[in-house]
Deep mutational scan, measured.
Amino acid sequence: RRPMNAFMVWAKDERKRLAQQNPDLHNAELSKMLGKSWKALTLAEKRPFVEEAERLRVQHMQDHPNYK
C-alpha cells in the first residue's frame, strides 16, 4: 500500500474528531468538510503533516525498495 500523503496524515485524526462531533454525517459529507478545512490551512499549519508524509515516503522506500 502507498504511504499516506500530507492530507491523509492530517485527515486520519481530524476525521475521527469530526465524526465524533457530527455522528449523523455520512462519510461523503465528512470528506467534503475535511477538504475545505485542509484548503483553509496555511502552509505553516500544513508543514508538520507534509514533513510526516515525507518521512513515511522515505520509510516506505526503505521498506519496499521494489515498490513502483
Rank of each mutant, 00 (worst) to 15 (best):
R1G: 14
R1M: 13
R1Q: 08
R2W: 04
R2S: 10
R2K: 04
P3G: 11
P3K: 15
P3W: 02
P3Q: 09
M4Y: 04
M4E: 11
M4I: 14
M4A: 01
M4F: 07
N5S: 14
N5Y: 01
N5A: 05
A6G: 07
A6V: 01
A6K: 01
A6C: 00
F7Q: 05
F7C: 03
M8G: 14
M8A: 13
M8E: 15
M8L: 09
V9R: 02
V9I: 13
V9T: 05
W10M: 01
W10L: 00
W10K: 04
W10E: 04
W10S: 02
K12R: 10
D13N: 08
D13M: 06
E14H: 06
E14K: 06
E14P: 04
R15F: 05
R15L: 05
K16S: 08
K16V: 05
K16R: 13
K16F: 06
R17Y: 06
L18H: 05
L18N: 00
A19Y: 10
A19Q: 14
A19F: 07
A19V: 13
A19T: 11
Q20R: 12
Q20F: 06
Q20Y: 04
Q20W: 06
Q21V: 06
Q21K: 14
Q21H: 10
N22M: 09
N22Q: 06
N22R: 11
N22I: 05
N22T: 05
P23A: 07
D24K: 08
H26S: 15
N27E: 10
N27A: 13
N27R: 08
A28P: 10
A28N: 15
A28F: 10
L30G: 01
S31L: 09
S31I: 08
S31P: 00
S31A: 06
K32A: 12
K32H: 00
K32L: 07
K32G: 09
L34N: 01
G35N: 11
K36I: 05
K36F: 15
S37K: 15
S37W: 02
S37M: 04
S37H: 10
S37F: 05
S37I: 14
W38Q: 01
W38N: 02
K39E: 14
A40M: 11
A40E: 10
A40H: 05
L41R: 01
L41P: 01
T42I: 01
T42A: 05
T42E: 05
T42D: 01
T42L: 03
L43V: 12
L43Q: 11
L43K: 15
L43E: 14
A44T: 10
A44L: 08
A44P: 08
A44I: 09
A44C: 11
E45M: 13
E45I: 00
E45V: 04
E45G: 02
E45S: 03
K46L: 00
K46A: 00
R47G: 04
R47N: 03
R47T: 13
R47S: 06
R47C: 06
R47W: 04
P48E: 05
P48M: 10
F49Q: 01
V50D: 08
V50T: 10
V50R: 07
V50C: 11
V50S: 08
E51A: 05
E52W: 04
E52L: 04
E52D: 04
E52A: 09
A53E: 05
A53V: 03
A53W: 01
E54P: 01
R55M: 06
R55I: 04
L56H: 08
L56I: 08
L56C: 06
R57C: 07
R57M: 14
R57W: 08
V58L: 15
V58N: 15
V58W: 10
V58A: 14
V58Q: 13
V58F: 08
Q59V: 09
Q59G: 09
Q59I: 14
Q59M: 10
Q59R: 09
H60E: 15
H60P: 07
H60K: 09
H60V: 12
M61V: 09
M61G: 12
Q62G: 11
D63C: 02
D63Q: 12
D63H: 05
D63P: 08
H64K: 14
H64G: 13
H64P: 05
H64E: 13
H64W: 09
H64T: 14
H64L: 13
H64S: 14
P65V: 13
P65E: 14
N66Y: 06
N66M: 11
Y67A: 15
Y67H: 13
Y67I: 09
Y67R: 13
K68W: 11
K68G: 08
K68D: 14
